[in-house]
Design a protein around this nucleic acid. Structure first.
Lengths: 234, 234
DNA sequence: AATACGGTTCTATTGCGTGGAAGCTGAGTC
DNA sequence: GACTCAGCTTCCACGCAATAGAACCGTATT
């Protein structure tokens, strides 16, 4: 029965899955070449070409004169639409900005992705010349990162979670959960070079991050309706 | 032979096109129901269901407990990625903010979409209680709108284009082109209710919009590299 | 010149996408 | 409760169209 179900479970069209895989591949690696797409998705070049052409005529990818593929206007548009439907982005922007104003480090808005992933949804870039570069759109495995704890709603009594050199060496992360109706809507996450953040400043920054996460939380609480991406909870 | 060529011309997989159509449909109308998707895309319900399931297992759409479809995490993620690759978004944000600070009206960043469409990429929302509501992600036909002229690089000697009650009644639009290397990278667009914008304020706002477009233009000129979505021009 | 590699076109094969039919559920109506 | 209707779902036989390999071309690389 196991194989029967596993065969049955598919309920999914191979062609479309492959095309979506290609779309993701192009979106993740800018200026991708056909053969690179074919290799990384495990498709025959001719198949990849045909599917990419389909994506191209549909406007989801563009092909430059050099022959490389990049995200197309249609994807950008749908992305803007989907992001516009994420109410957290608007709510969090001022807080991200205030964190940057206070700390000079890059500040991110993070939400849950699948089961064990987090998505970096938005950022305000830090002002130091050495700073964390953009991770917007990146998805990471949660594992036991600071931001993972925050997304699970954990907090120290200080209101934030911090971790040094965990995800990447020399990067210190400070995270705090954005709460909503008993659940967690997302998290704020500050990322900066470890050498610039000693224990005292870490605590200082942590309090700022925690405070801003609290600000957003109370905004959410004051509003009717649920953040779209939490709807399924009800 | 006519049917032979028309069959040949496709060079495009029907299945994928249909799936992408469904994806766009879901992204455009939030909380879409299966039958609505099937109807608006002209698919048999069973076909639409199977394709939507594929999109669902791939994470491009989510299905709520109520059975309605909405943009999934994967789409949000790819959207954030694609938008992050649009250098204009970062560059334009401060200008949009300054326009809103000065005018109180909603300000948009617009880029060319396909041949005759424009995409509302980003916005900063106005502060008046009656204001233009979000169009982020929306695509419009260019026709002879103010923003269309701006995207073609047209300018009056005052540096901006304005139009009353054209796209929608009671909406006044003020637009100015963001120039780059002899081409047009995009446009800034202010939208507000006509009753609040008489000729004098229109001119005042127009100067602000034109100035900010100029600021972005000179930033672009000062940088190496091209905005990604203009690459094909070279 | 020789080689290798990426891109493209073409085509026979058959895998699989398709849509109609038929159950199923739940909501609305009398 | 009985009836109806609409939306959702499953199933399946049919036949279209997606597939991958072979062959060809243009372009770097040595």
């Amino acid at each position: 029965m196991s194989e029967l179900t596993s065969a049955r479970v598919s309920a999914s069209t191979r062609t479309v899955e492959r095309a979506l895989g290609l779309l993701a591949d192009v979106a993740e690696h800018d200026a991708r070449t056909l053969s690179a797409c074919a290799r990384s998705t495990g498709l025959a070049p001719s198949t990849a070409l045909r599917l990419l052409r389909t994506l191209e005529t549909s406007g989801f990818v563009t092909r430059s004169a050099a022959g490389t593929y990049r995200p197309g206007n249609r994807l950008v548009r749908l992305g803007a639409l989907a992001l516009g439907r994420q109410p957290l982005v608007d709510r969090a922007r001022p807080s991200l900005q205030r964190i940057v104003d206070h700390t000079g480090e890059s500040a991110y808005l993070v939400i849950r992705g699948g089961l064990d992933t987090a998505i970096y949804l938005d950022m305000v870039e830090g002002t130091h010349s050495i700073r964390h570069t953009s991770w917007v759109g990146r998805a990471i495995e949660l594992e036991d990162l600071a931001v993972a704890g925050a997304l699970r709603g954990e907090r120290t009594e200080a209101g934030y979670l911090a971790q040094r050199d965990r995800l990447e060496p020399d990067v210190t992360a400070i995270a705090a959960p954005i709460r909503w109706a008993g659940g967690v809507a997302g998290a704020l996450n500050l990322l900066g070079p470890t050498y610039r953040i000693d224990d005292a400043t870490m605590h200082d920054y942590g309090r700022v991050v925690a405070r801003e996460a609290g600000v957003i939380s109370s905004h959410l609480a004051a509003e009717a309706g649920a953040p779209a991406h939490l709807e399924e909870v009800r």
